[in-house]
Each structure stands twice: as C-alpha cells, then as structure tokens.
Amino acid sequence: MGSTELKTIRVLIAKPGLDGHDRGAKVIARGLKDAGMEVIYLGLRLTPEQIVEAAIQEDVDAVGLSSLSGAHLALFPKIVELLRSKGGEKILVVVGGIIPKKDFAVLKEAGVSGIFGPGTPIPEIAKFIQENIQEK
C-alpha cells in the first residue's frame, strides 16, 4: 500500500494569541503552496484549542505557528500538548517569528520540531516539512 497513493502534504498555518503581524505567516502559506502543499490558512487571533481542533478535523501532516509578541512559550507548548491528547501526536509542529535562541531548548523539549527565525528561506522550511512528517 502507499505506492499508488497521491500523497499531498497538508499543512495548517495559524497565528495563536493576539499578535497581528501576519506578513511571515502569509508569505510561508504562499511559499508552501508553491512547493506543492495544501495549506489550510487559519489566520489570526486563535486559541490553542481552536488551532488543535482545526488540525484534527483537517487531518494535516504539519502545523506551522507564528508569534512575534513574545507569547511563544505560553502558546506553542500548549498546542503540542493538546495535539498529543487529542490524537494528533503524529502531527509535525514547526514555528517561526521572533524567538530568542535561549528559548529553543524549551520549545524543542516541549515537542516543537522545527524553529525558523526571520530570514529562513522558504525552500528550507518546505524541505524540513517534507523530510520530517510522519506516516499516519
């Protein structure tokens, strides 16, 4: 099984919290589309619960989160945790925005797989997702 399936990667892009800077999220959404992925763009001002429920219903392979307001430590680990408890433990979580290097370890520990700061080329992010998503 599998060889004849048309596997299109599905990625959910969302901005948790109140930060409204969505330039990065929109650019990534377009970039991943151009890399052949289906991007479910969820937009702004979402709670971790809303993001996780959407990720489950959309059965995505990866979730991409962005925050620039400094709320990442409160929001990203919570989302990973909720994904795990709701049956989305195989969903890859990648994040971006303004994240100080000293927080990388905490986020990785919490289950965030990829952290992409400003200036990361989109093909690099696309490649990371392609190589790290899990078969469900």
Partner: peptide
C-alpha cells in the same frame, strides 16, 4: 502548476471551531 493550494475558507468560520456539533473540512 504546482498542485499546491491555499485553503482559506476556514478563516470565516472560527466561531464554530470548538462546537461539538460542527465538522469542517477544507
């Protein structure tokens, strides 16, 4: 060209995300 897509319809349906009685699929 690429086979990719941006599915943005959900943006407008945020109020129903956590409603047990609603299922949304893009």
């Amino acid at each position: 060209i690429t086979g990719g897509a941006v599915l943005g319809d959900r943006i407008r349906m945020q109020q129903h995300y956590l409603d047990e009685g609603v299922f949304i699929r893009s």
